[in-house]
Deep mutational scan, measured.
Amino acid sequence: MGFKLLSKLLVYLTASIMAIASPLAFSVDSSGEYPTVSEIPVGEVRLYQIADGVWSHIATQSFDGAVYPSNGLIVRDGDELLLIDTAWGAKNTAALLAEIEKQIGLPVTRAVSTHFHDDRVGGVDVLRAAGVATYASPSTRRLAEVEGNEIPTHSLEGLSSSGDAVRFGPVELFYPGAAHSTDNLIVYVPSASVLYGGCAIYELSRTSAGNVADADLAEWPTSIERIQQHYPEAQFVIPGHGLPGGLDLLKHTTNVVKAHTNRSVVE
């Protein structure tokens, strides 16, 4: 069995187990497998329904001669939608809004960016022009300005110390501490036991640490421990890039980060 097929099978099995364990909360999309990078042309966006009122959005972007996937989250909030992270750029984010209108038909009224990198804030200006209120932590807003990236308009308070959590509509926002970046936030959907790890969490097929220019490698494993301790009931975990899975993604990420750190020390 090929690795790609095995990865998709694991996603399907995880979703099936969740649907059985929580039949009222989960209505997993039966329309197909989780979209992969090879299936999404740059400039297009796919939506994948995880649970009743919960979707991931998947886009792709060219970077350094390669094409990478990027995940975000959409959560229903009454007759409105909360968006977590842009679709990595203005063109993708405009396509995301169009796809949401086509498939869901509810307005996106608020959006949260989970850290300051372009795959999370690139497209904020498109959201703002569409009347979406954009939010991020003060740290993310400051770092985005320093980096020359787009800056969300509103500040999220109460997320300055490791372990801080605040309720934001249908989700809980959690600051686990520094990891992929010093400002990275985690998003949890309690009604569906869905954990969105953003770039602080890796997919299972990833074996290298990737972009760690703004990471705190020493603190990252401790931050992941905080996530595990705060959300032990999480059933569906979405990484910032690639295929979702279960809580095993947290341990896998820790292993990859520690291996990278150990290699760096040896070198």
Rank of each mutant, 00 (worst) to 15 (best):
L47T: 09
A259L: 09
M1H: 02
A51R: 07
T153F: 14
G177Q: 03
L5D: 12
H57C: 00
D183Y: 05
E157C: 05
P239D: 01
H115P: 03
R226M: 11
F26C: 10
G32Q: 09
V75D: 04
I50N: 05
A95I: 13
S208T: 14
F236T: 09
G53M: 08
S161H: 14
V212K: 06
N262I: 10
H230D: 07
S264A: 11
L106R: 12
Y68H: 08
D214N: 08
L97E: 04
R120Y: 02
T153M: 10
A98P: 06
H230V: 12
S205R: 07
I224Y: 00
R263P: 13
V67P: 15
E147R: 09
P41H: 13
G246R: 11
N149M: 13
H241D: 04
L159Q: 00
A51L: 05
S181D: 00
E150T: 02
L73M: 15
D29N: 09
D164W: 07
D29K: 07
A259G: 13
L24E: 12
G131I: 06
V187R: 01
E233R: 12
G43A: 08
S155A: 13
V194L: 08
L5S: 13
V54L: 06
S16K: 06
S181P: 03
L82C: 03
F63L: 12
A136M: 04
S162P: 15
L24Y: 15
S161P: 06
A95R: 12
F26G: 15
K91F: 07
V166K: 10
E219P: 05
A213Y: 08
V54R: 02
V187E: 04
H230L: 11
S160G: 14
G158F: 09
D125R: 07
G53Q: 10
G53P: 05
S22Q: 11
R206P: 06
N255H: 13
E150Y: 04
V45M: 03
V146E: 13
V171T: 06
Y12G: 09
Y231F: 08
I58P: 03
A179R: 02
T140I: 04
L156P: 05
A94R: 14
R206N: 15
T253W: 01
E101Q: 13
D183A: 01
I224A: 02
Y68W: 04
W55C: 02
F3H: 06
L159A: 03
R167A: 10
H117Q: 04
P23I: 07
V121W: 01
A59D: 06
F3G: 09
I224T: 05
F174L: 09
A66Y: 13
L24P: 12
A129E: 12
G131T: 07
D183G: 02
G72C: 02
V146M: 14
L73V: 04
S56P: 09
T134Q: 00
R206T: 15
P239G: 02
L249H: 03
Y202P: 05
N92L: 03
V166F: 09
T86K: 02
T36P: 15
A19C: 12
A94Q: 14
T134P: 01
L204N: 11
F3K: 09
A192G: 12
E99R: 13
A129T: 09
G246W: 04
Y68K: 04
G169D: 05
Q103T: 14
D118E: 07
L81C: 03
E203S: 03
I224V: 11
I186Y: 01
G53K: 11
V212E: 07
L81D: 00
